[in-house]
Write a protein that binds this DNA or RNA. Structure first.
Lengths: 217, 217
DNA sequence: ACCTGAACACCGTTCAAGT
DNA sequence: ACCTGAACACCGTTCAAGT
């Protein structure tokens, strides 16, 4: 939009911030390099001076967001520290839904992403887990948070589209109770597990209970 | 491709099977309705007679694949039954990588998808969990399998692209050991947790250990 | 180094029309 | 009901050129 931007006013930081604003305002899927360039008042190719391609820009936006993951709280027990990091990451994903897609579609890299990993891995090592267990646990926790929160965000987005939501409810209610007795009987409970703090903490507590058993045994 | 297909030879089943073949052969991201129509020898708009839009076709392909999730093994303990269902779903996702994206991007619906949910929910109810716990556990297990396996598939795809893989290794090795001592020290172990049966079973066993504690307590 | 402009090879979907 | 053809409003990226 707007008028043409004069030369040498563009930079990587501005591009990343504008990209993030655009994803937040118009939706992650609607984001395009052409739209971003228009918003910045430059031609699409101007962006290629700062980023190799679209994925490269995605990585930069992701790292920009990962800087907002709060640090590990000092002086807490290790399970509470793990809880804090996982909840902090989930919270950030809920505040910036594009982060879910950015984390899921690209391998981890970048300074701020490493910082988050360093925090969680440090907690696990200090808790006394050996290197392999710490690494396995880190990946398990990360993929759990990513999977659970991505799903939550996806379901919330579906609920926002009234037409899609109506169709989903219709097909759910049309399921034959003779063929799917348990799904039909538990439909209300299932609908309540598509998201929310309680559902997330339930899964996280299962993992932590398993970990505690491992640490004790 | 090929020549023009005569009228009335098209049907939903053929479209779904061809779409799946195309996703498998050329990659999920490269899939397009126009490419599918060309493969079928029809105009792009011919598909709209059978599917409302691209998402509607995606739902059909997903349900087509979910039919291949093996049934719950009878006569096993409930933790082994849970293990079997989760492993079966993961195995299918690894065999058909597009399933990961199809599950993650759309809400669950369809006959075969309901069948899989019915199986797992039935196991949990028969294990003695109340309705809410069964529903919460089902969603937790599903999002865990989805998150862990999607990540595994994504990392495997990245490894296949030599240029992207080289860049990833380079940035990992360039991380300063003074700022990220634990990440650098555990880099070999972390690289080994990006996938594989052991990594998946480790996370699944944590969840099952947490569940067992809950069932006992 | 930084950015433009035209071009290439695509997309999903609407609309009006044909059989 | 089933399918076509043209059109609309887009994409990411390459390439050659300009400052």
């Amino acid at each position: 939009m707007a008028t043409r931007t004069p030369r040498n006013t563009l930079n990587a930081e501005l591009i990343v911030r504008t990209a993030l604003d655009l994803m937040e305002a118009r939706g992650t899927d609607a984001f395009s390099l052409r739209g971003l360039a228009a918003e910045l008042g430059v031609g699409p190719m101007a962006l290629y001076t700062y980023f190799r391609n679209k994925d490269d820009l995605y990585d930069a936006v992701r790292d920009h967001l990962m800087a907002l993951v709060p640090p590990v709280p000092a002086g807490a027990s290790w399970p509470d520290q793990v809880r804090a990091v996982c909840r902090g990451l989930r919270r950030l994903m809920l505040e910036h839904p594009c982060l879910a897609q950015l984390l899921a579609s690209r391998p981890l890299s970048g300074h701020e992403t490493a910082r988050v990993a360093e925090g969680l891995l440090g907690v696990l090592r200090d808790a006394g887990f050996d290197n392999e267990t710490a690494a396995r646990t880190h990946t398990t926790l990360f993929t759990f948070v990513l999977g659970a929160t991505s799903w939550e965000i996806q379901m919330a987005a579906e609920r926002r589209d009234p037409e899609a939501w109506r169709r989903l409810r219709t097909t759910m209610e049309a399921l034959p109770a003779t063929e799917f007795p348990v799904v039909v009987a538990l439909a209300p409970e299932l609908a309540r597990t598509t998201g929310g703090d309680d559902q997330f903490d339930y899964g996280l507590d299962l993992l932590l209970a398993g970990l505690a058993a491992k640490a004790a045994g």
